[in-house]
Amino acid sequence: MKDKIIVIVGPTAVGKTKLGIELAKAFDGEVINGDSMQVYRGLDIGTAKVTPNEAEGIVHHLIDIKDPAEPYSVSDFKTDAAEKIKEITARKKIPIIVGGTGLYVESLLFDVSHGGEAQPNQAFRQRMQQLAEESGKDVLHRKLTEKDPEAAAKIHPNNVRRVIRALEVIHETGEPFSSYQSEKVKTPLYDTLTIGLTAERTLLYERIEKRVDLMMEAGLLNEAKELIETVSEDAQSIKGIGYKEFIPYSKGDCNIEEAVQKVKQHSRNYAKRQLTWFRNRFDLSLWADLTANEQAMQQVFQAVKIHIGRD
């Protein structure tokens, strides 16, 4: 039998963290973080990381497990989260995965690879391009051969752009470029109840903007400055919304108001992409708008009871 798990997904600022805690309290569960930025220590305000007070005693896993300069890939998350599911299940508790990073959650739930969907990393591409120009295309291709011989066998050394993309995928995801198959059948790995949270678009955007304002009041600027001073612009941690927008400000290229507006804009855009991702890629068990009425929460609780076999 497959392990039973609960998954809560949806856009930023929609209430995923709070629901995860409520379900864990009601059904003796533990939360596994499914957000790519909350794994980093020190990135607390900008990632809306759950505080001890908010957690209400509920155990949260895969939070604060990496230093900001360290990489953390999709495959790393899949391995770590799968291990946590085993541990939690062995304790007769319910694993509850909470997060909005679609690639992470999908990699955990299904037997799929996301190599072809790695986000572009311009700094990495520039370094690889420079390596090809200074040392030759063959050096770059040998680098790919060492990391992914199957991909190297299919990509000609003269196709520098494709070689760089393959190396970029490996760098960003930790997975071989050759492992990606766009039409790969998604095989479920768990007995999953997947809850998608949503909200009316205007209200969601209002919540996002208010949250950014509260983050600024709580010290987001100082948190971002410390990160910018600590890691390189190529680090995965600094690519997160709420941090990368302050890089131009730190260089004197924009004022604080412009930086904050960028955080809000990027957060709204991200929320839209998240909703599209989960609607198109996930066969969700149910969608719930917890901002609309109390009945939505009752429906969620009823679905969980049925899923885990409780009256």
Rank of each mutant, 00 (worst) to 15 (best):
K186E: 15
S179P: 01
I88K: 12
G252S: 12
E200G: 09
P248V: 03
G252Q: 12
I85N: 06
R91P: 03
R310T: 13
M1C: 14
Q265L: 11
T79C: 12
E83T: 06
Q302Y: 11
A69G: 15
S237I: 04
T47F: 04
L189T: 07
L197N: 04
L108P: 03
D213F: 01
D28R: 10
T47Q: 05
D283P: 05
G196M: 08
H307Q: 09
L286Q: 02
L62I: 01
E245N: 10
N293C: 14
Q265A: 12
N121M: 11
I247G: 13
A151T: 01
G99R: 02
F301I: 03
M215F: 14
N33C: 11
D148R: 00
A90K: 13
H141G: 08
E87I: 00
E245W: 02
S73G: 14
Y72D: 08
V14T: 11
A132F: 05
K49E: 00
I45S: 11
A296P: 05
R273L: 12
K305H: 12
Y190L: 10
A118H: 04
I228R: 04
A303W: 01
E87T: 04
A90P: 08
L131M: 14
V169G: 00
I164E: 10
K2Q: 15
I195V: 13
N159E: 12
L109G: 11
P52K: 04
K184T: 08
G15T: 04
P52D: 09
V7C: 06
D76M: 02
P68F: 00
E206D: 13
S250H: 09
G46Y: 03
F177I: 02
E294F: 03
S107R: 01
L19W: 04
V7G: 08
A218F: 01
K49V: 01
D213Q: 05
T198S: 11
A152H: 06
G174H: 08
E229M: 10
